[in-house]
Computed example of a mutant assay.
Amino acid sequence: MLYHSVSDLVRLANEHQIPLWKVVLLADVQERQVTVEESFETMRQMYQAMRQADQEYDGSIVSASGMAGGDGEKLHAYNASGRSLAGGYMGLVMEKAVKMGESNACMKRIVAAPTAGACGVIPAVFLSYEEYCKETENRMVEALFVSAGIGAVIAENASIAGASGGCQAEIGSASAMAAGGLAYLQGGDAECIANAAAFALKNMLGLTCDPVCGLVEVPCIKRNSAGAVNAAVSAQMAMAGIKSAIPADEVVDSMRRIGNALPAALRETSEGGLAVTESARKIAERMGKKEHIAKKTREGNENQ
């Protein structure tokens, strides 16, 4: 039951006439030499840790840099006001994604899904679905297996690290994982799940990793929210019967090639993009990194 591609996941699900999440579970059983029950419970613990992190969000805490904290609470208040155009499920997704990203920046316990920098995407999409649609925990755990399978394929054939693939490898991968899981929750079959993942990842291709001051805060936290919303949009297109012209595995391969083509300045080094803007320089000065950022700003301007 081993798989190395999204097409493998779809093929195995269809050949054995089992849901895609069970393909991933059985592969885990085979790889780690555990029982089906043990595998499922391990994933349940992951999901419960996500829920706990969401429940323990504290809007009064600010990160050491001062760049992160309190925005999740602002989104919560705006959603509660009834004025949000993205009300209901989507508003909740945006809120929870920011809250989780802020919790990471404030050194609270989160689940790397697939990385700490992208930790808000999957929890936001799934916890919001569980709450909004009154779904059972078991179904949410099944969806997490779907996400894990997609993430494993991306990690094997491309990358989930910003340092090697840019933010498309982090937020993009998380968004594809969440999209596939959401499509499953809404009744999508294996092909639908693959299309949802393909849409989500296509929408994030080329996304740079350019954290201000080298911290996973700006623009990372807000990108979690964008990635989560992208996942929901992608799942809805797939559920509508729309098919990706480019298969998921080819999208993953494209992400790998694009990541390799990105200059080092845009792969987590904070030597380009948003990290060398005037505002970033001022933030760094406030944090006592004046000379470092000034040098990077000059180099960035010379290369433009």
Rank of each mutant, 00 (worst) to 15 (best):
M239K: 13
I160D: 03
A68N: 04
V23R: 05
E271R: 07
A105N: 00
H4Q: 15
G181A: 14
A196Y: 07
V229R: 02
A176T: 08
L207T: 08
T269S: 15
L127N: 03
A112G: 03
V62H: 08
V93H: 02
Y78D: 02
M67H: 04
S84L: 11
H76N: 01
K296S: 08
K296M: 14
D71Q: 12
A13M: 04
V29T: 01
S270R: 05
K134G: 06
I293W: 05
G187C: 06
A80S: 15
A238S: 13
H4T: 13
Y57R: 08
R286I: 00
D210T: 11
T35I: 12
D54L: 14
E73W: 03
S164A: 09
G151H: 09
A161Q: 13
T136A: 12
E250L: 13
V252E: 00
L215N: 00
R286K: 12
E142S: 11
A240F: 00
A86F: 12
R298G: 00
L182E: 12
S128L: 05
R257K: 15
E95C: 12
A194C: 01
G69V: 00
A163I: 08
N138D: 15
V29L: 09
R267G: 01
R109Q: 13
A294G: 09
E291H: 07
A124S: 15
E268K: 05
I171P: 04
E31F: 10
V146S: 06
